[in-house]
């Protein structure tokens, strides 16, 4: 009898302990600061947006969300640094087109975005437009195509493999043009290069016109479909899809947070709830800087679908250019 009582006591203690620890773990996340890894340099648009989001999440979660910048290396070191940390929800990754889309498609990476990560949401977005200087002879996109044929104009982009570059490459391919690409590191720098005459044409963002006023002229928006914010930033400018039905100008620029695959479901839920509460409201949207566009997608399934749509869009483009890594 004594033995049975002892065994029962032991079992119930064990059960209590496990149960207690379980609830303790559940109730405790987050109990220490969270790290957000950003694969861009500090100060740029992607970084600023990530910081604003980190700040909002931090208020919801009650712990600091610290941004760590790990730029360079085709975003691989930053991505891997998240995968090297434990899957406990204390390391978040700020994913973006390079890290989740272009780099895995164009080179062998030690990770697979949709297998190794659980994407939580997407927020930041951008759309690109083609710009020339205000004193350029090309006043319409059609004139530009005519004038650019047979010449190799200098095209300014920010970085190789980044969406502006891919949009430019796609456009060249669709319209039978050839360009010499000059990578000037950031979008403002490429537009500055345009104004200074270093390049003849540049890919900037739709919102870039705000900063450069009458020094540059938009020719066309490099997208198939019209998004809501186009009218606000570039009134009267057509998209490729509208002006040339049948020509492809798909662009995919999104970014958001993700955690390592294998993170416990309850932790993921806390993060999802916090992000929805923090960012899916008017006050937050009003705090987004003018130069940054916003396209909200929330939840693991929806965000995964969004990322998959990007892969579906870019794979054939990259394949056609011989850049798809097989």
């Amino acid at each position: 009898m004594k033995r049975i009582i002892k065994q029962l006591a032991g079992l119930s203690l064990a059960a209590l302990a496990v149960f207690g620890m379980g609830t303790a773990a559940q109730a405790a996340y987050p109990e220490k600061p969270i790290t957000l890894v950003v694969s861009f340099a500090a100060g740029g648009n992607a970084d600023v947006m990530a910081r604003i989001q980190a700040e909002a999440m931090s208020k919801e979660l009650g712990v600091p969300v610290n941004v760590v910048n790990r730029p360079g290396g085709a975003h691989v070191p930053a991505t891997m640094s998240v995968l090297e940390a434990p899957a406990d929800g204390y390391t978040l990754f700020n994913w973006s087109p390079p890290s989740f889309m272009v780099v895995p498609l164009t080179r062998a990476t030690p990770y697979k975005p949709l297998e190794d990560f659980v994407p939580l949401f997407a927020g930041i977005s951008a759309s690109n437009a083609l710009y020339v200087r205000s004193d350029s002879p090309y006043t319409t996109f059609e004139e530009f195509i005519e004038g650019a044929k047979g010449k190799k104009l200098k095209m300014g982009v920010n970085n190789l493999g980044a969406p502006p570059n891919l949009s430019a490459v796609q456009m060249a391919d669709q319209f039978g043009l050839e360009f010499t690409t000059i990578a000037l590191k950031t979008v403002p720098a490429s537009l500055n290069g345009l104004v200074a005459g270093e390049v003849d044409v540049a890919v900037g963002q739709v919102a870039s016109l705000n900063a450069f006023g009458d020094k540059i002229r938009p020719l066309i928006i490099l997208d198939n479909n019209r998004k809501d914010f186009y009218e606000k930033d570039l009134p009267g400018v057509r998209t490729v899809g509208e002006a040339f039905p049948g020509k492809e100008a798909g662009a995919w620029v999104h970014g958001g947070f993700a955690v390592k695959a294998g993170t416990p479901d309850d932790v993921v839920k806390v993060l999802l709830d916090a992000s929805a509460a923090a960012m899916d409201n008017d006050a937050f949207r009003a705090s987004i800087p003018k130069a940054i566009s916003w396209y909200w997608v929330h939840g693991v399934e929806d965000t995964t679908a969004l990322i998959q749509s990007g892969k579906d869009l870019y794979s054939p483009i990259l394949d056609g250019l011989g850049l798809l890594h097989k």
Partner: peptide, 8 residues
């Protein structure tokens, strides 16, 4: 070293 085509 390999020179991928993306850069031109």
């Amino acid at each position: 070293f390999e020179t991928p085509a993306l850069g031109g």
